[in-house]
Design a protein around this nucleic acid. Structure first.
Length: 551
RNA sequence: GGCGCUAUCGUCUAAUGGUUAGGACAGAGCCCUCUCAAGGCUUAAAUACGGGUUCGACUCCCGUUAGCGCUACCA
């Protein structure tokens, strides 16, 4: 046990007397357990030791310690589409950080844009997260918290840090944003910002629609600063930040307002999100400041982009941007998580294949790099080769029983009636031969189908051999298999000695047998295959092959 | 246009200012082998460009170029 003493800095009469200790396991492989000796705070896992004990008050202190110390992160998707691979990665990094540090993972649906949200999209997000097997501790929906957002806007307005803008929405639209703006001219809607409080109040009271706009202190020479855990110190002059909207004329909050209001209310400690929000963060810092709240910590993630360097979009790149595509193509959730983590983050050693648990143990913001990462796909090959390799790697190293279980529904979905027992026998033969779960259909089809797919008789003829040799081999195989012990070793011995008695190489004899039984030249190892197929099927298929050669 | 961010093999990435610039995937070749895989070995492949600072720069600074992001009453 590693012990760190930390002074209690929360307000209250116990400040001087309380002492908090954090116990963490070696190498931080588990969530930090905040344990303060003395009393035990179950929910918080906090115990407090003081010089003079007053348990009632200590419980309160423990609770406040908990809220000050525990890490709270959120994933805040807006339900306007399926779960995007980039969003999934953002979720994963938040989740990893929370789980790594014993924090709280929050799912917050950012659905303030009522017109663009769909329930279907929400379902697809849940579906994706469920497949990935990632959980969360608390869940909120922004549309249910609109009062909170409005209150913040009103309070900022009351402080004079925002103003009403009565410019009609239609007029604002004609202000062509496509065209480059003259320097400085784009920062404000003329007249609105300087409107007297009296006029503003009067027009609002008269029912004239307006948006509440943040009054950025232009000309003050101020520079907005924040520290980003990935991108370092960030700064921007207030003169380069426009007066952005907080509340729409409909009374609905904008993203900036709602996001900040909720981050405050939910006591978010770390905002981990895509780098596309990096410049928005200056506005957010301004909002936090206006709300009188210390901003959370920020960590922006490099973006995931397409091979042509453009942002991944469904319109342009198709289904490869949707998490469900990976699920339906036979990726393992943990392999997919592994792959996503390797895009934009590195454990700094040469590790590539990692389980979810290993990732929890090793993840940190330090390993995140700053440049965008390409997901390398093409039209012919929709999946990044490394993703496929990692998937194969996870398939190979997982217990055969688990793989068999994962394979069964894939096989059933393709219309084959295979029992779990049979699948369990087949699995070891194909485990290192499939890269995606759906490959099972290509590699093991001859186990499932009653009738072999038609194949040309010439396939039966071995290399450096002829039809006569194939025929002799198959006839000999027929005799041999009729009596041989149907186990791997029994078949091995029987067939090798059969080849010897024919005076041909074992490999040459195996080739026609393999094709006869599997219907193609590439297949899993022969003896195991024969064993699982069983004597009856093997003999029947060899007879068919002989007939095929004779015709 | 303005502002911000970024730049190492084809791709993902590593490298306290001192390494023959490392690893992985994909590619090529060889070995192993009943085919296919898996595995082993070998190979090719990068610091965007130009200036500084320094004994020494992938690393720090400036510029150029390129890419990305933000610049909505979208998120």
């Amino acid at each position: 046990m590693n012990r760190r003493g930390v002074s209690l800095t929360t307000a209250g009469s116990f400040r001087a007397a309380c002492h908090m200790e954090i116990f963490t396991s070696p190498k931080y492989t588990r969530p930090a357990i905040v344990t303060v000796a003395g009393i035990h705070h179950h929910a918080a896992r906090i115990r407090i030791k003081t010089d003079y004990g007053r348990p009632g008050n200590l419980a309160g202190t423990a609770a406040s310690l908990y809220s000050n110390f525990m890490i709270r992160v959120r994933f805040a998707p807006s339900p306007t589409g399926y779960l995007h691979v980039g969003s999934a990665r953002t979720f994963i990094f938040n989740w990893l950080y929370a789980r790594r540090n014993g924090g709280t993972m929050i799912l917050r649906i950012d659905d303030t844009d009522l017109e663009r949200n769909t329930e279907a999209s929400l379902r697809s997000i849940f579906e994706g997260l469920q497949w990935l097997g990632l959980d969360w501790d608390e869940q909120y929906r922004q549309s249910e918290r609109l009062d909170l957002h409005r209150q913040l806007a009103e309070s900022i307005l009351a402080k004079g840090l925002a103003y009403r803008d009565f410019t009609p929405a239609a007029a604002a639209e004609t202000d062509d944003t496509e065209k480059p703006h003259a320097a400085g001219a784009w920062l404000a809607n003329p007249g609105q910002r300087e409107m007297s409080a009296e006029e503003s109040d009067r027009r609002a009271a008269a029912g004239e629609p307006y948006v509440i706009r943040f009054r950025v202190p232009h000309g003050s020479g101020e520079v907005v600063r924040f520290h980003d855990a990935v991108y370092g110190e960030q700064s921007k002059s207030v003169d380069d930040i426009e007066d952005f909207a907080l509340l729409r004329s409909s009374g609905a909050p904008t993203y900036h307002l709602a996001s900040c209001a909720d981050d405050v209310d939910l006591r978010i400690t770390h905002v981990v999100r895509g780098q596309d929000h990096l410049t928005n963060t200056f506005k957010h810092v301004l909002i936090f400041r206006a709300a009188g709240i210390e901003p959370p910590q920020f960590a922006h993630l490099p973006l995931l982009i397409a091979p042509d360097g453009s942002k991944l979009s469904k319109r342009k790149h198709g289904p490869v941007v949707s998490v469900t595509t990976y699920r339906d193509s036979g990726f393992l959730p943990q392999a997919f998580i592994n792959f996503l983590c390797l895009l934009g983050w590195s454990p700094k050693d040469d590790r590539e294949k990692m389980t979810r648990e290993e990732l929890v143990g090793i993840f940190s913001f330090e390993g995140i790099n700053r440049s965008n990462a390409v997901i390398n796909f093409t039209e012919e090959d929709p999946f990044d080769a490394k993703a496929v390799w990692l998937n194969a790697e996870h398939i190979r190293t997982m217990p055969a029983a688990s793989l068999s279980e994962a394979l069964l529904p894939v096989v059933h979905a393709a219309g084959f009636a295979v029992t779990a027992e049979k699948m369990a026998q087949i699995t070891p033969l194909i485990q290192e031969r499939i890269r995606l779960l759906r490959d099972v259909l290509l590699v093991a089809d001859f186990f499932f189908a009653q009738e072999l797919a038609p194949y040309p008789a010439t396939e039966l003829i071995p290399k450096k051999g002829d039809a006569a040799m194939a025929l002799r081999s198959l006839q000999k195989a027929l005799e041999t298999l009729a009596t041989a012990e149907f186990t791997h070793d029994g078949l091995d011995a029987a067939l090798r000695s059969a080849a010897e008695s024919l005076g041909i190489k074992a490999g040459q004899m195996f080739e026609p047998i393999r094709v006869a039984v599997c219907g193609r030249k590439t297949a899993p190892p022969l003896f195991g295959t024969l064993e699982v197929l069983g004597r009856e099927i093997c003999l029947a298929r060899i007879e068919q092959a002989i007939a095929k050669l004779n015709s």
